[in-house]
Simulated assay, not measured.
Amino acid sequence: MITRCWIAALSIVGGASMGIAAPETSLRPASRPAAKVQLAVLTVPVTANPQVRPKLRPVSDQILSAAARPADLPALGPIQSLRPTLRPDSVVEQALFKRRRLRKGSVCGDISIQGDKVGTVPAKQSGCGAQNAVRVRSVAGVTLSQPAVMTCETAQALNIWVEKGLQPAFRRRNQVVSLRVAAHYACRTRNNQPGARISEHGKGKAIDISGFTLANGELVTVAQGWSAKEFSKRLRKAWSAACGPFGTVLGPEADRHHRDHFHLDTAEHRGGPYCR
């Protein structure tokens, strides 16, 4: 048994020393005969003619147009393009004169609010009267059917509503050009009811709007337009937009006293704007 183990070990050592070599020292495979290589090349099918070149891409219309352009035609790049003609001095002067006139006729520190200063409105009875009141003729380029007396706070709210709420509610090509004023400052009770509290009209904080004149001359009244198919959506949108700039917004659905106009005032309420 011991003899067999020694014989196996000697055979392994002998084999390692005689015939087994590392990969880097092993013999390379013999080269193929040249005749076989040529035969393999000849048997490969030829699918393309080496003498035929790929077709050139067609010339674009842009290159043809550039080539056909006359050489003496000047370039019209952005730098070399003609500049717009300057406005005549008369146009500039008219714009400055108009702005100067608007600034002169503005009140409440806003050129968009045109009117006259009134100052203190005396109170005919307790609870009425206004301080630093103004008589507004137009707001945001929209004229009032009659000059309306109110405080600057109310005038500013009216200006914001007309510009950002009323005009967007109507078509851009047929904007509102005039407001029909139903009531403004008046020393009276709410809804003219005996014994009621003094209305915001008696404090210069309210204005009633009963209709709108459009750029095409059409008059849209609150009484008729509120339920009309053509203007109902626009009037409701305009009414909703007033809730925010004004503290109180009443319309045809509020009560029977406001079925034909919008009542807008700047009274403050604890729960926020009151809109019905």
Rank of each mutant, 00 (worst) to 15 (best):
Q51F: 13
G14F: 13
R100E: 06
G109M: 08
E200R: 12
C152E: 00
D255Q: 06
M18Y: 10
L86T: 15
M1S: 07
V177H: 05
F231V: 03
A215I: 07
P50H: 06
G14A: 14
H261N: 03
G217M: 09
S138K: 01
K117Y: 05
E200W: 13
Q80P: 04
F231C: 00
G129H: 02
I20M: 10
S106F: 07
R100D: 04
A16S: 08
A21D: 05
A169F: 04
V181Y: 09
R259S: 12
P84W: 14
I111Q: 01
Q51K: 15
V59L: 11
P122Q: 06
S227C: 02
A67F: 11
T266N: 02
L39C: 05
G127F: 02
G247K: 06
G105K: 11
S81D: 15
S26P: 00
V107C: 03
L96F: 09
S145F: 01
L10A: 15
V162Y: 02
K98N: 13
G105M: 11
S240N: 12
P252K: 05
L86K: 15
L179C: 04
T85N: 12
A123P: 04
K36G: 07
G244S: 07
A75G: 09
R259E: 07
G272P: 01
R197E: 12
D116A: 11
R270G: 08
A206D: 02
H263D: 01
